[in-house]
Amino acid sequence: MPILMIAPSVVLIAIFVYGFIGRTAYTSLTAWRGVVPDYTFVGLRNYERLFQTEKFQADIVNTIHFTVFFLAGCLVLGLGAAVLLDQKLRGSIIFQNIFMFPLAISFIVTGTVWRWIFNPNYGLNVLFHNLHLDFLQSGWLTSPGSALNSLTIAAVWQMSGFCMAMFLAGLRGIPEELREAARVDGASESQAFRYVVFPLLRPITLSAVIILGHISLKIFDLVFVMTFGGPGYATDMPGLNMFITTFRQDLFARGAAIATVLLLMVALLIVPYLIWNLRGETER
């Protein structure tokens, strides 16, 4: 009976996830190029070619760079904001809403707005100049050196509220008595945080990392709208490369190869987590 209840979901996921993944993986091993499907088997040739392109090499480096800084940014800002809000100051509910509202906006809008804000001639630089903070000016998205970090800022802006919400939930879930007990034992506020609160936040941190991590590996809309991968390949990402390769260049097999690599990267992040998590559960 319980199995029957989840059967619809299992069937749907089997088709829509694993069936389609299988098809994509299969396509990546064929010679399909141009709009006519060509299922001649060519082995790993598409992968060899792919890894030789400068663009894809840049993609891999960019994805790792972006993911690391995006995660760090979201976790730091999210935790910082959550700790501040947890002080239960007057008006904190207003701040909480402000921090969360970017979650309600689509990446498409975020991309358009931040592209402007980063425009060196009429965006943030003007603001910094007016505030006599000229040293903060930068080329932002326009120079290959700073473009990826600027993209990261926009992504952090959008998603850090989610981290904040999770950490806030985590903090509020820690019984006050625990901290009280630490204080009674003579621990300072920061010690109490470090030795009592922080360890208890670990599971929630991990969940946040997983959810944000996969968003960052797959990032597409934001890059599409903000930079289209430029300047050069400075902000190009596998998701965008795949879209262009498949739908603009008609290199369907190579596009499928990119998708498969992307999937493997995601799996590398997710599968250990899933195993660790489920194992830990059975032991508990």
């Binding site: 989840i6 979901s9 299992v10 996921i13 829509f16 996830v17 694993y18 069936g19 389609f20 993944i21 098809r23 994509t24 996969h214 590996l217 797959k218 597409f220 998701g239 795949m242 879209f243 498949t246 369907f252 596009g255 499928a256 990119i258 998708a259 498969t260 992307l262 999937l263 995601v266 799996a267 997710i270 599968v271 899933l274 195993i275 489920l278």
Partner: peptide, 19 residues
């Protein structure tokens, strides 16, 4: 089964558009 279901959350959607 849970793990297999959950993994579906992580697939890049552009990659499965044509199928």
């Amino acid at each position: 089964i849970f793990a297999l279901l959950l993994f579906g959350m992580f697939i890049p959607y552009q990659s499965i558009l044509i199928p």
